[in-house]
């Protein structure tokens, strides 16, 4: 815990908040343009946060007050700590030697869990329904997420000996596309599709925003939050979206720009930073922007079935293709020349 580490960590967290909020603004703008509206300015989320910070912070009489007030802080701090363990902007994570992918998976779980606990503690029926839906949704997609992470880790464990497979070290991790044959490429593509399908649920966006469905259950788990608490949860939602996009980029596109073009090493971090932003934007564009502009909300049972049956099956096929590629791929390719 040197002072330099603390300064770096603090700067990184502020940067993550800023990028997450701006990406949220970009999302609102892009979705508005798709619906042929003009849309809010890109800095709108930052204005919203400023406004929420000056609003009155109401704690309902029926709420369990300490849980209700603690959970927004738990949610935002875990969403921020996540960025200390996952490679960010083409640089290695600050705590790359302390954490691994399993820890990162758990850190991804805590913010929605904290939101659900806060919802239960707020003593409102709407918030309870929203929290229940959040938990059901989480149980449905965590299966898929675990399958994706373990499939890729298995792939590394058999193809790259001596590599710590759960490591979050960027240098130790080759791009998964480069170490498989044609079958494996299709398998990784299926895994990528499933992870993009998990994205809207992780981000709480349409068509999986039933936990905060504002037209039917009054913003769900957020229903009783106002002022500072709401501002924290608002930032947390933006960080969750950005964080999961960072995670997908790390799993599937870990390569940096210097692997494609040569650059002056002095400017390389800047180019890597923008290359990283481009990758995150591409992931979010495919999985959140387009999807939330053209879909309506699922019912919770439909969403749960969608993840447990459809998406989970697709991810298992992806794993199967990876296994086929490794064990009998060579013989099959020889057979077909």
């Amino acid at each position: 815990m040197t002072p330099i580490f603390i300064v770096n960590a603090f700067g990184l967290m502020l940067l993550a908040i800023l990028i997450a909020l701006i990406l949220n603004g970009v999302e609102r703008k892009v979705v508005a343009r798709m619906q042929s509206r003009i849309g809010p300015p890109i800095l709108q989320p930052i204005i919203d946060i400023k406004k929420l910070l000056m609003k009155e912070n109401i704690v309902p009489e029926t709420a369990v007050k300490w849980v209700f007030n603690t959970m927004p802080f738990v949610a935002i701090s875990t969403a921020l700590v996540f960025f200390l363990y996952v490679p960010f902007a083409g640089q290695n994570a600050l705590l790359k030697n302390q954490g691994d992918l399993i820890l990162v998976l758990y850190l991804l779980v805590i913010p929605p869990l904290a939101l659900a606990i806060g919802g239960f503690a707020s003593g409102s029926n709407f918030a309870s329904i929203g929290a229940q839906r959040e938990l059901v949704l989480m149980l449905s997609y965590e299966f898929v997420l675990a399958t994706i992470v373990f499939s890729l880790s298995w792939l590394y464990s058999v193809t790259t000996p001596n590599m710590p497979v759960f490591s979050v070290d960027l240098e130790a991790r080759p791009s998964p596309w480069l170490i498989v044959g044609p079958f494996g490429t299709v398998g990784i593509l299926l895994l990528l599709i499933t992870s993009l399908a998990v994205m809207p649920a992780k981000a709480g966006k349409l068509p999986h925003d039933m936990s905060e469905a504002k037209t039917e259950i009054a913003d769900g788990a957020l229903a009783e939050y106002s002022g500072l608490n709401l501002a924290l949860l608002y930032i947390t939602q933006a960080l969750r979206t950005f964080g999961f996009a960072t995670f997908i980029v790390f799993l599937f596109f870990p390569c940096n720009i210097e692997q494609f073009f040569g650059f002056d090493p002095f400017f390389l971090p800047i180019f890597n930073f923008f290359f990283f932003l481009a990758k995150v934007f591409a992931v979010m564009f495919c999985s959140v922007f387009i999807v939330s502009a053209v879909t309506a909300r699922f019912r919770i049972d439909q969403a749960s079935a969608f993840y447990i049956f459809t998406i989970f099956t697709i991810s298992l096929f992806g794993l199967l293709l990876l296994i086929l590629d490794f064990f009998i791929g060579g013989q099959l390719y020889a057979l077909f020349g």
Binding site: R28, A32, R37, I38, G39, P40, P41, Q44, I47, D48, I58, F126, A213, K214, T215, I217, A218, D219, L222, A223, E224, Y225, S226, L230
Partner: peptide, 16 residues
Amino acid sequence: YDVERFGIKLVGTPRH
């Protein structure tokens, strides 16, 4: 009319 361009947003609960 698109009031969202002025930052006006319809919310689901009076707390917000």
